[in-house]
């Protein structure tokens, strides 16, 4: 009897262990997922923001303020972190960097603990992951999304600086040949031909409103087939010809190099994912007005094309984020 009990216990323990083990494996995946959400979803709002008056002026008084800039662990974030770090350095601050903080939960935790003073976050991601907003309740206007994020962050003693012009969101991409063959410009143009086309997307795409589910509900599209693949395959399946339509990100460098056609979201389905630098209230007050001015100035030129080029230089041309950020600041005359 005793032995049987022991065996039952052992089996239960094994089930629990295996479950926990699998969950742990899962969290690795979810890390890349959250990355995707960060990159994922929406409209192109390329604004020509005000030129904030040329080169950044160094203020000697800022030297005693040390700012640690963080970022999450993927290319676009790292280059944003570098741009902010180098710009703030140019403004006279003493700057440290922590540009590999994992997913947004890790980054936020690090920020709240005070190990970093600021990191860039996407408005859509903040609303979804931090503030419990459901995808179908996300504002579709970038300004409204930023206002909501700013108010929510303020409750946690965090300051969200004005966002970038670029939004890093999901895009419905086809090859030039497919676009020409079916005459595709807007997502709604897919309606007549979707039943002949195979759509590829990440596994979670199937049930997301900013992905397949939204395409079905908002646009009424019924694709011939949906094939889930790993996120890293999003461009390859399209250029390789397996996919007729693939879900990519706005700032993917491959979009330009492979000449993908990004269909216009004519029904406004994708929520905004502009990037805002989130700063601790204490650090913000300590740093003085130059912080916000500097960030706003360098943000102004960060439109989708520029960020795509920055990503391309790092992912495809193998530059470091540091080099790419430096070139950006020089190119637009922020530093000499």
């Amino acid at each position: 009897m005793k032995q049987r009990h022991l065996r039952l216990l052992l089996v239960l323990a094994l089930v629990a262990l295996a479950a926990v083990g699998l969950t742990a494996c899962g969290s690795d995946d979810s890390k890349s997922d959250s990355t995707s959400t960060a990159d994922g979803a929406s409209t192109e709002t390329t604004t020509t923001a005000s030129d904030a008056g040329g080169a950044i002026v160094s203020n000697a008084a800022n030297g005693k303020v040390t700012l640690t800039i963080g970022s999450k662990n993927f290319t676009e974030q790292k280059v944003l972190g570098e741009i902010y770090a180098q710009a703030l350095q140019a403004a006279g601050y003493t700057v440290k960097k922590q540009l590999n903080l994992g997913d947004e939960q890790t980054a936020l935790k690090t920020l709240k603990q005070g190990d970093i003073d600021a990191y860039p976050e996407y408005t859509g991601t903040a609303l979804l992951s931090f503030f419990g907003v459901k995808t179908d309740a996300l504002p579709h206007d970038p300004a409204a999304a930023y206002d909501e994020v700013k108010a929510d962050f303020a409750k946690q003693d965090l300051v969200a600086l004005p966002p970038t012009p670029f939004t890093s969101s999901n895009e419905v991409a086809v090859t030039q040949a497919t676009a020409a063959k079916y005459g595709l410009k807007n997502i709604s143009d897919l309606a007549k031909v979707a039943d002949q086309l195979t759509l590829y997307g990440s596994p979670e795409c199937r049930q997301r409103l900013d992905c397949l589910l939204g395409l079905q509900k908002t646009y009424g599209l019924k694709f011939k087939k949906f094939v889930p693949v790993d996120l890293s395959q999003r461009s390859k399946v399209l250029s390789g010809g397996q996919a007729d339509v693939s879900i990519v990100f706005t700032t993917d460098p491959q979009n330009k190099r492979d000449k993908f056609v990004l269909l216009k979201d004519d029904k406004g389905m994708f929520p905004p994912y502009n990037s805002t630098l989130v700063v601790r209230k204490a650090s913000f007050d300590k740093a003085g007005p130059d912080l916000a001015t500097t960030i706003e100035a360098v943000n102004a030129k960060l439109d989708a094309a520029v960020v795509q080029e920055l990503n391309a230089r790092i992912d495809l041309d193998k530059e470091t984020p540091e080099q790419a950020a430096g070139e950006y600041l020089k190119q637009f005359g922020f530093v000499k």
Partner: peptide
């Protein structure tokens, strides 16, 4: 799927799938 698409299924879904697999 629930393990990989955690953003859709949530922690409960991820763990639920892990339990079923085990």
């Amino acid at each position: 799927d629930p393990i990989i698409s955690q953003s859709v299924y949530g922690d409960a879904g991820k763990l639920a799938a892990a339990i079923v697999v085990a």
